[in-house]
């Protein structure tokens, strides 16, 4: 699903952020990308969804070379990737339904079909019947659930999460992680970046550790379980 081959990204001040990075993630995997703040996790994710370009090396997403993607093709790549951030990035001026409809509109889906789809998505993230709520009325965990529903709107094959539980209390964080797990069980590939080791310990999944722009360890789930 994701393949990095000798990828280097250098913003031009000091050391490169990512250095000769190679790894790959199979379809259907749920993996964690850990590393301290500033290790390059966000940059790595941005490379995957075409917000940055590598200085060298190639990046393939679902077999497609995204490192040399034309600018005009980036939107179509993104419709196949759901992205979730630390802040839910919901629009305060729209209801829960409006926020998810917004994502469907982008793909040209509207009307009754879109409304029904919103209902299904909300049910999937445990927010059934909350269409008319406003983002400001929701707790942090609920906002994040809506953000996940929006990311799922166009049925992406891949979900990227960047510190998606960073603003949440530990118990809420666990609920959200379980939701990600359920989404993964249903077949969606997920790459979850975090600097929070606690998150990783609970999940017993594959963990890629990024230090100074290099993957210093790639522990498979079995090993992770043994550490548990």
């Amino acid at each position: 699903m994701i393949r990095f081959d000798h990828v280097t990204k250098d913003f031009g001040h000091g050391e490169p952020v990512l250095r000769d990075l190679s790894f790959h993630i199979e379809p259907g995997e749920l993996s964690f990308l850990i590393g301290r703040s500033g290790a390059g996790k966000t940059t790595l994710l941005r490379l995957i969804y075409g917000a940055e370009r590598p200085d060298s090396g190639t990046i393939r997403v679902a077999g497609r070379d995204v490192s040399r993607l034309r600018k005009g093709s980036v939107p179509y790549l993104r419709r196949n990737i759901g992205i979730i951030f630390q802040d839910s990035k919901l629009l305060e001026s729209r209801t829960v339904e409006g926020n998810i409809l917004f994502a469907l509109q982008v793909a040209g889906i509207g009307g009754r079909i879109a409304r029904r789809r919103v209902g299904e998505l909300l049910e999937r993230v445990g927010m059934a019947g909350r269409e008319e709520s406003w983002p400001a009325e929701l707790s942090g965990g609920e906002q994040q659930r809506v953000a996940i529903a929006r990311a799922l709107a166009n049925e992406p094959a891949l979900i990227l999460a960047d510190e998606a539980t960073g603003n949440l209390d530990p118990d809420v964080s666990e609920e959200i992680l379980n939701l990600f797990d359920a989404i993964n069980q249903a077949g969606t590939t997920i790459l979850f970046a975090t600097h929070d080791m606690d998150v990783v310990r609970e999940m017993r999944k594959r963990v890629l550790t990024l230090v100074a722009g290099e993957v210093v360890s790639d522990r498979p789930p079995e090993l992770e379980a043994a550490y548990g």
């Binding site: 969804y49 005009g72 939107p75 179509y76 790549l77 993104r78 419709r79 196949n80 990737i81 992205i83 990035k89 629009l91 917004f102 994502a103 982008v106 793909a107 929006r150 709107a153 166009n154």
Partner: peptide
């Protein structure tokens, strides 16, 4: 601008 950022992330084309 917020809306535009989100639109870009969701995969809206420039034309859209």
């Amino acid at each position: 601008r917020e809306e535009i950022d989100i639109m870009r992330l969701i995969g809206a084309t420039n034309r859209f």
